Amino acid sequence: MTIFRTFLLTVSCLFIFSCEDKHQQATASYEHTSTGAFSSALSHDGKYSLISSINHGVALWDNQQHALKYLWSEQQDQDSLVHTVAIAYDNSVAVTAEKNTFSVWSISTGENLGYYKIQTSSIRDIAISNQGRSVLYGRSDGVVVYIDLETARRIEFLGHQDKINTVDISPNGYYALSGSNDYAAYFWDTRTGQVIHRFNHPTRVTQVTLDSQGQYAFTADSMQQAHVWQLTTGDLVSKLKYIARQKIFTAVRFNQQGTLLATGSPNKQVDLWRVSNGEKLQSWQVTPRKGSRPKSAVVLDIAFIDDELSLLTESSSGIAERFTIREHNEHN
């Protein structure tokens, strides 16, 4: 009887762990490039994926039709790859950037709306506002540049003291968030260039993002601090709770309500967090390419889809993957 009970307990545990493991796996995957991705951006709703790869240039995928929509080129060569891409919040336009150039593209027609060359330093990160009205990019010389593409008005933000790692812009283009090797992130007004809040870190700031509804900012450094800030007051809302000695974020997205935060890391890891207290709610791992060495993948972007019941990721493996959010975590 004891042996039988032990057998049943063992079988039950195996079944539970099997179900748990299965729950954590991707529920669907789609190959977007056969050679892996150099950079990727998802639209906020996951409808589109924009992917730069060495052999295929820049591709825009329609994730609803699971079909290639456009192939774009910026006179690419092996020494000048598109290394950063972004999609406007309203899905109207996309921007692609090489070291010294950037291009704006219409998502509805595929038309190139403008090709721009910068004369000073090099582009480190780029963002674009609704309707492609304005572009924000950070340079390796520590300058963040805002350009109104309709009026040609230009602001150079000089608040940082070291190279820029990451930038984001509000959907209406009025506000910018920038992070630098100078241990600071600045939230500032693109109409005046004035700083609204400074968010300090003990090491270089490697990731920033704005909540699309204007409630929160996320900033993270290269070691142990990842924070959510209240934009109206500049107060700290929460600090993500993890015990790793070092944790780097390569992708971040707030959900529409500003209650959840999804993050991706360079070690395949995808995590879901509660904004109000920084508690981790769920974790997954993206799939490396077969035969890749080391056997890992960088999570390049992430989006809430299916009425925020799922996450969609793009990774350096060139594969888009869908993950299910547990129902009881959805809006807690």
Rank of each mutant, 00 (worst) to 15 (best):
K22R: 15
M223D: 11
I319D: 01
S283G: 15
S178H: 04
Q257A: 05
V208M: 06
Q225C: 05
R198L: 06
I126P: 01
L311H: 03
I305S: 09
T84Y: 10
A303T: 10
D307W: 08
L300Q: 09
S170P: 03
N332M: 01
D306L: 10
K290Q: 02
S53Y: 02
W273Y: 00
D90K: 02
Q24N: 15
T233Y: 09
F17D: 14
K241R: 14
F199E: 11
S53L: 05
W273G: 00
Q64R: 13
A67K: 15
V143D: 11
N100W: 11
R198Q: 10
N172T: 06
A320W: 11
T84A: 06
G132P: 05
L210H: 04
V270C: 04
E31R: 14
S49H: 06
P266L: 00
A37H: 01
T151N: 13
G179L: 10
F157S: 09
V167S: 10
S18L: 14
A88T: 08
A127M: 08
G179V: 01
N112G: 12
L158K: 05
T287I: 11
N130F: 01
T101Y: 10
Q282A: 08
S222L: 05
I196P: 09
D77A: 03
I196W: 01
W61R: 14
K47P: 00
N267I: 09
R293H: 09
A28R: 03
K295D: 13
T206R: 15
L231K: 04
V135G: 06
T203A: 10
T250P: 10
I123F: 08
V167C: 05
